[in-house]
Design a protein around this nucleic acid. Structure first.
Lengths: 340, 340
DNA sequence: TTGTATGCGTTATCAC
DNA sequence: GTGATAACGCATACAA
């Protein structure tokens, strides 16, 4: 079943030496034009494919990197991994995908395997941006970048979404549309993302000379149920219904939309909604469809991949946290025109 | 930054020959107990890690395989890839993840890279089960298995979900609960999955001496919108509301549930719902929470990985299609007790 | 029990 | 312009 046609086979078949074949195929060294063509023809005919293992062994670079995740099943992992893979494969490097599944022993096994396979670099990913991978990066001896993950290690390079900026943009969008009494219904406050989004929301408000209405900064779970629950609280609140709500996720917004609609509230007439994630299955199916902050996860992944590449090639990269700008996706939940 | 401690370093440091180190570390050949311990100690102290590239080159087996997908972003890809990765990494083989993105040229690039890296085998995945990868498998020269994908190639090995069995089970569940007028609202008929599910639904009905009520086999899109649309059609139908509905996906069921509820229908009182996917974000958030067929995608991936392993090890595997049994997840949308 | 020599598939350094 | 030859890091048949 194997097809181990080696450079030696090509050499004998072409009636030249091994080194001549190598030169002909790699365009290195000085070689006769006719010999070159001949060798290439023979190589093609035989279906010769240089053994990358041998090449890697020789040049001390494997052109492969590892992605180590603790949550391969997470909804956020996918676009990130996709972005990494695309950016890297465009640069001829392959990626090993490893799922540590929050299991330290498994993580070690994966790391051992990756290191043994002489990966040129490693990308760490996590379920939430404020997760700290318990891992001695420096001891690895290869470049590491964190994608959608943070590290306390000195000099660590972390690529993260711009939660604060996203919330700021979303809130400003609401303000620009004339909304003034803007509430914020976020996820769990234990998440850094939640706190950052609140900060962005507040910043935009403050800048416009506004303030959060009383009892209108609510925090709960990342769920539709919490969104529905919050809707009731907003409807029943003595402060009166806000004319806009910044939700911490599309799921929350979806619950909110359902809750408000069932409470007889008109959207976006009485209340406008913006949210986070641009998880299209949710955002597009919500009534009204959600205007939402797209965290640009695929781009985040691509940047992580490219950054790792720079590191591998020896360029120096500024350490610390880099935040990837988000993008506001306009749909109907704010009442603005589709293009604005 | 590199830590290229080789077997040679260990040898000199330990004051023995290279082959002695190799034997000591691999437990092969006859060697003195004290020498072995000594060598091992030195190796550990130096942090020696055998170069897998060299080992692979030597043994002609790389202990790595490739996953080639056309749709890395698909919701189904994730659990499948996760299952593959887990099964394989438990057997010390690493996986390269490649996204062809429906681009033939990109696919070729990936294949070239994988083959050059001497992967031991390849797993092909797709967006839909009836997708045919335009690829000459035999020419690859390595074992291939299709996961959630089919191939017309003779001798191809395909692992697929059991759509028909799942629909059969779901429908029988409804019948066992006393429902008699059972409708079916599926996805696009162009999907094999849709046709198989319809077949399973009909088989269960027939077996129970029942038949689909008039105008109650509806087909549309894989969307909530279609579910809501179908709900109106069922409510307005002159044949009267069915007392149960088998939906082709959780998304359809979610739209159906919303449509029915807003149409004043009580679930599961008047009408029970079952669906497909067990996509928990949808299924659990629907009111009522959906009883749904879990296609066991992770298990499917694991089986694909294990099957590939068998192939690689030279065992022979029965070619053709193997369907992985699904599992009915009981929630509230059928009115049955949570455990049944 | 241990060490020497050879090969795995390539590339690169040198002679010729 | 072309071809031996020595690495790359490791495993193993064989010799000692």
């Amino acid at each position: 079943m194997r097809t181990p046609v080696t450079i030696r086979n090509v050499a004998t078949e072409a009636g030249v030496s091994i080194s001549t074949v190598s030169k002909a195929l790699n365009g290195t060294g000085h070689i006769g034009a006719k010999t070159r063509e001949h060798v290439i023809a023979v190589a093609n005919r035989l279906g010769f494919r240089p053994n990358d293992l041998a090449q890697s062994l020789h040049r001390g670079r494997s052109f492969s990197v590892g992605i180590l995740s603790n949550d391969i099943y997470g909804r956020f992992t996918l676009p990130i991994v996709g972005g990494i893979e695309e950016a890297l494969s465009d640069n001829r490097v392959s990626v090993f995908l490893c799922n540590a599944a929050d299991d330290l022993e498994r993580q070690k096994r994966h790391l051992d395997a990756l290191l043994a396979k002489r990966i040129d670099g490693l990308i760490l990913t996590a379920r939430r941006t404020d997760y700290l991978a318990p891992l001695d990066i420096a001891a690895l001896g290869i470049p590491v970048v964190h994608a959608y993950a943070q590290s306390a290690a000195p000099g660590a390079i972390c690529i993260l979404p711009d939660d604060e900026g996203g919330a700021y943009d979303a809130t400003r969008h609401l303000i620009a549309l004339g909304r003034k009494r803007i509430a914020h219904v976020g996820g769990p406050q234990s998440f850094e993302a939640t706190r950052l989004r609140q900060a962005g929301y507040r910043a935009a408000l403050k800048e416009a000379g506004l303030a959060p209405p009383p009892d209108s900064e609510l925090f709960g779970a990342w769920s539709e149920e919490w969104g529905r629950d919050a809707a009731r609280r907003l409807i029943d609140g003595k402060a009166g219904l806000p004319d806009a709500i910044v939700c911490g996720s599309d799921q929350i917004a979806r619950g909110m939309a359902d809750g408000l609609r069932e409470g007889g509230i008109d959207m976006p007439g009485q209340t406008a909604l913006v949210s986070f994630d641009n998880w299209d299955v949710i955002a597009a199916a919500t009534r009204p469809a959600l205007t939402t902050v797209d965290p640009n996860l695929k781009e985040l992944g691509a940047q992580a991949g490219l950054t790792l590449l720079s590191l591998i090639e020896g360029k120096d990269v500024k350490p610390g946290i880099r935040r990837v700008p988000s993008k506001l996706i306009i749909r109907r939940s704010c009442g603005s025109p589709d293009r604005s």
